[in-house]
Design a protein around this nucleic acid. Structure first.
Length: 614
DNA sequence: GTAGGGTTAG
């Protein structure tokens, strides 16, 4: 009996070119062409209802599979799941129907765990996974970082003879790098009998995800002998350059997009967003703004990147103005801020010390925009309050948080206790909470606690902290600064470094600088370096060797007069180096840009863009 | 019917 569509059914217009991949049998049924239109989910359900009204039909099994597949594509995964588990009339589950559902589940963040369950269910029903099954399940494993599940899948793949399927291999490489097993991913990648552009993109992105930026860029170069980069490739390359923070490298990557990529890549929103981020992170906020102004289309992330970039560079007013422009729809972009927008806005308030505005934006995020604050928002807010001296209010906020405070939040408060001399006992209590909330012990809290003791002149306790650290095998992260000189070569310095070939000249320059500074009235401030003081014996000597100072001195002797000196530092810049950089910028007529762990400092004519609030 | 893309507190 032929199925017919009832007159009351609101059927979609027939597709322009009915297609099916299931061979002649698929074409045999008049309903099948409609089923490819996955987005007609209501109509699909109506077709399904019609199909159920009729007695079993020779094509019903096929029809059921196709309905399930198409509905799962339309996004109504729960309907598909019901269809699979409670089919009426009884439907024999097939690998195809399971694959359809596993795919739907692998695309939804909250349902990904269920796709692993479905895979197991498939095995229990003695259905054989095929070449389509594994990419979907591996995608879920990658997202969930389920290393053990994915490794077992790898064994199944080998056992079932799929080890040379390029889709499966690419999915495996992606899975291993998502689980931070980069060497496993790389081994698999290197041994692939055949690689395509996607294989390279996955491997490059894997390196970026795992922080292997130089390797990512090496692979990027290697890839080009076989494939031209696409938007995915460039996205990863730009991200690697941004993380390395070297401006000339970033400019090279931008030039690459402009010269070697077609218009679709150049106009890609994600690529342009990455360029805004790249220039912000490489210290050129003017170029970041230019990319933003000139990009053909913008989305929320474009605005977020601009707001965050401006905040990071201390252009607080412009950052908040960008937020106002964004919500006022001045550009006609019709965008609503998301939770990350508020990270940017609160971060701007924090860098500018704007407590009242910070409170206002935090409240409006919840009341006006209905965004539930996350740990990161509380982190910003606690930092805004405590750095401005409102430590009690910060603690009150922590008490009322909807999530557990992490070590970052406690460290913010401890940092404020330290800077504002909140009292040793109080600070000790905060340090205790910070240490308790730390999953893996790091040096940060100990360093702050030692500063608390140092500012109270309790040197015995400073020694005690040091002993505790060494007993627990915790080492202070060494300060490290880098500077890129003209030709793109990056020179790296650690505190007290004398390994650079030009070390002698660097220290001579440093002596010259300090003589000039002393004559200009500079007095060293060693209050922030209690731990180093003990190591080196003499405080002022240790301050003189801070890595950022060596990098700036090297910049002075290696770049032409008047050129901007750009330095990257892994830790926060100390107060004394900050003071020195301001004076150097004036005495030597140089702009000095320092990116430290938290933000950019632009030193110009004796003052800093952070207005000494950091 | 199959693989790969972004921004986030200190």
């Amino acid at each position: 009996m032929a199925l017919s569509i009832s007159p009351t059914l609101s059927s979609p217009s027939p597709p322009p070119s009915p297609s099916s991949t299931n061979g002649a049998a698929a074409h045999a049924h008049p309903l099948l062409p409609y089923l490819d239109l996955a987005h007609y989910s209501i109509q699909l359900k109506q077709i399904h209802a019609q199909a159920l009204k009729f007695p079993p039909h020779p094509h019903l099994l096929l029809l059921h599979s196709r309905i399930l597949h198409s509905i799962s594509l339309s996004g109504d995964v729960l309907y598909s799941l019901r269809l699979l588990l409670h089919p009426f009339p009884p439907l024999l589950p097939t690998s195809f129907s399971f694959n359809s559902l596993i795919r739907s589940f692998s695309r939804s963040p909250s349902l990904k765990p269920l796709s692993l369950q479905l895979y197991l269910q498939m095995l229990l029903l003695s259905l054989s996974p095929d070449n389509h099954t594994f990419p979907f399940v591996l995608k879920s494993c990658a997202f969930l970082s389920s290393f053990s599940f994915g490794s077992q899948l790898h064994s199944h793949i080998v056992k079932l003879g799929f080890s040379s399927d390029i889709y499966i291999l690419n999915s495996l490489v992606h899975f291993y790098s998502s689980c931070a097993r980069l060497s496993l991913a790389r081994r698999l990648f290197d041994r692939m009998p055949l690689k395509n552009r996607v294989s390279w993109n996955i491997m490059i992105d894997g390196c970026v995800m795992c922080g292997e930026y130089e390797t990512a860029l090496e692979l990027f170069r290697d890839m080009q002998s076989q494939f031209s980069p696409d938007a995915y490739t460039m996205q990863s390359a730009l991200c690697a350059c941004a993380a390395l923070g070297a401006l000339s490298l970033g400019m090279w990557a931008h030039a690459f997009v402009l010269r070697k990529c077609d218009a679709s890549v150049q106009n890609d929103v994600l690529i342009n967003n990455s360029l805004i981020d790249l220039y912000s992170k490489c210290g050129d906020i003017v170029m970041a703004r230019r990319v933003f102004d000139e990009m053909p289309q913008r989305d929320v992330t474009s605005w977020n990147a601009l707001i965050l970039g401006l905040a990071m560079h201390g252009q607080v007013e412009d950052s908040l103005l960008a937020f106002v422009r964004m919500i006022a729809d001045v550009e006609g972009d019709k965008l609503r801020p998301n939770s990350i927008t508020f990270i940017g806005v609160l971060s701007a308030c924090n860098h500018g010390g704007l407590v009242t505005e910070g409170r206002k934006y935090f409240a409006s995020m919840v009341d006006e925009f209905g965004i539930k604050p996350q740990l990161e928002h509380y982190g910003c807010m606690v930092d805004i309050l405590s750095r401005a001296g409102h430590i009690e209010e910060a603690l009150e906020l922590v008490k009322n948080m909807n999530c557990k405070p992490d070590v970052v939040i406690w460290r913010s408060i401890l940092d404020a206790c330290c800077k504002r001399n909140a009292g040793v006992e109080f600070s000790e209590a905060v340090a205790k909470r910070a240490l308790e909330s730390e999953l893996v012990a790091t040096s940060g809290v100990y360093v702050l606690l030692s500063k608390v003791y140092a500012s109270a002149n309790r040197w015995n306790e400073v020694g005690l902290v040091r002993r505790l650290m060494s007993e627990e095998g915790i080492k202070k992260e060494p300060g490290c600064s880098s500077i890129e000189i003209g030709d793109g070569i990056v020179h790296e310095f650690v505190a007290g470094d004398s390994s650079h070939p030009k070390s002698k000249e660097i220290y001579e320059k440093l002596n010259e600088v300090e003589c000039k500074l002393v004559m200009a009235g500079y007095v060293p401030d060693s209050s922030q370096a209690p731990l180093v003081a003990e190591v080196d014996g003499v405080k002022c000597e240790s301050l003189r060797r801070h890595s950022e100072r060596l990098a700036i001195a090297f910049g002075l002797i290696s770049t032409k007069s008047g050129a901007t000196i750009r330095v990257l530092k892994n830790l926060r810049i100390c107060r004394d180096c900050h003071e020195i950089a301001k004076l150097i910028s004036k005495l030597y007529c140089r702009e000095i840009v320092v990116r430290d762990r938290a933000r950019f400092h632009h030193f110009r004519d004796g003052s800093c863009s952070c207005m000494d609030y950091w």
